[in-house]
Computed example of a mutant assay.
Amino acid sequence: MDLYLKVRHAHFQDGLSGRQIARDFGISRDSVAKMLAYSEPPGYRRTAPIRRPKLDAFTSQMDQWLAEDRSRPRKQRHTAKRIFERLRDECGFDGSYTIVKDYVRDRKRTGKEMFVPLSHPPGHAQADFGEALVVIGGVEQKAHFFALDLPHSDACYIRAYPAANTEAWLDGHVHAFAFFGAVPQSVLYDNDRCLVARILPDGSRQRTQRFSAMLSHYVIRDRYGRPGKGNDKGAVEGLVGYGRRNFMVPIPSFPDWHAFNAHLEEQCRKRQGDVLRGHKVSIRERLKADLAA
């Protein structure tokens, strides 16, 4: 079960492809497909609820404390140990800490916000910035890298800059569109201050002047994730992590930013080729659809 959870999290939360997951976990792509289709191993179904003779009388009290915690500061919420101590001291519980810990872990897990995987029609992109340490001209420093992902085909583009400012955002788009040889119909963004001057009461965005000019030039429709909801653009969030792990480990060292970006562009081209070879016609057609949309 633990492997199922890790595989599904890698795909649905981190945005990794089936091929990359198979490589990372050392399993076949058929196994990955099965794990993505089922939330638990097929055939494993519990037919009766779990019985906890020593704990069942106290579960409603634990549920109440956990529910109250949702409105409390994170650092002042019950741990499993604190719940066990309160049950023992205030409620006469004489069971073990382990069964309390297991129950609390399961309740916290099922109480987390869950997300349904999104479908990705062709011609729509997601963009974001990530950070990583690099050595440029012999000086170790932080690189801010622009990432643009085409989720339908899994094609990507990454370019690094000394700062994630307006110039970097605009330049990243220009180079990405040149790399793909096409412009997407829309791009999904977060509410970065370089792009969004402010969010209006009706939920619409007041764009910055230079960003608005770029959108007008390329005739792109801008879309935005909800504030604080990174999962809305999970594909590019996954790409940021993928690029950092695969293109920037060990810490890259280049004489200048131009050389570093030439390397990143080559890695994106190589990744795109690997995806096409791994999935043959289906992904190739998806890429064509992305670029033709």
Rank of each mutant, 00 (worst) to 15 (best):
M1W: 10
D2S: 11
K6N: 10
R8E: 05
R8K: 09
Q20P: 06
I21A: 06
D24G: 05
F25M: 02
D30N: 09
D30C: 07
K34T: 07
M35V: 02
Y38R: 07
S39W: 09
P41S: 01
Y44K: 10
T47D: 10
I50T: 11
R52C: 12
D56L: 12
F58H: 11
F58W: 08
Q61L: 15
R72L: 15
R74N: 12
Q76H: 14
Q76C: 13
R82C: 11
R82Y: 12
R82L: 14
F84I: 07
D89P: 07
E90C: 14
D94P: 07
I99Q: 12
V100C: 05
Y103V: 00
V104Y: 04
R105L: 10
D106R: 14
F115T: 07
P117H: 11
P121N: 01
P122V: 10
P122R: 08
A125E: 05
A127D: 00
A132M: 12
V135T: 09
I136W: 00
G138F: 00
E140P: 08
Q141L: 09
F145W: 03
P151Y: 04
H152I: 04
D154F: 10
R159P: 01
A160N: 03
Y161D: 01
P162D: 07
W169Q: 02
D171Q: 09
V174F: 07
H175F: 09
A176V: 03
L188D: 01
D190S: 07
D192S: 12
C194H: 12
A197K: 08
R198M: 12
R198L: 12
I199A: 02
D202M: 08
G203R: 06
R205E: 11
R205L: 05
S216L: 13
H217L: 13
R221L: 14
D222E: 15
G228W: 07
K229Y: 13
G230I: 04
N231T: 09
K233N: 00
K233E: 03
G234E: 10
E237A: 04
Y242A: 04
P250K: 03
I251L: 09
I251F: 07
P252W: 12
S253H: 06
S253V: 06
S253Q: 11
D256R: 00
N261R: 00
L264V: 02
E266P: 04
R269I: 10
R269P: 08
Q272M: 15
D274P: 03
V281S: 15
V281E: 15
S282A: 15
I283E: 15
R286I: 06
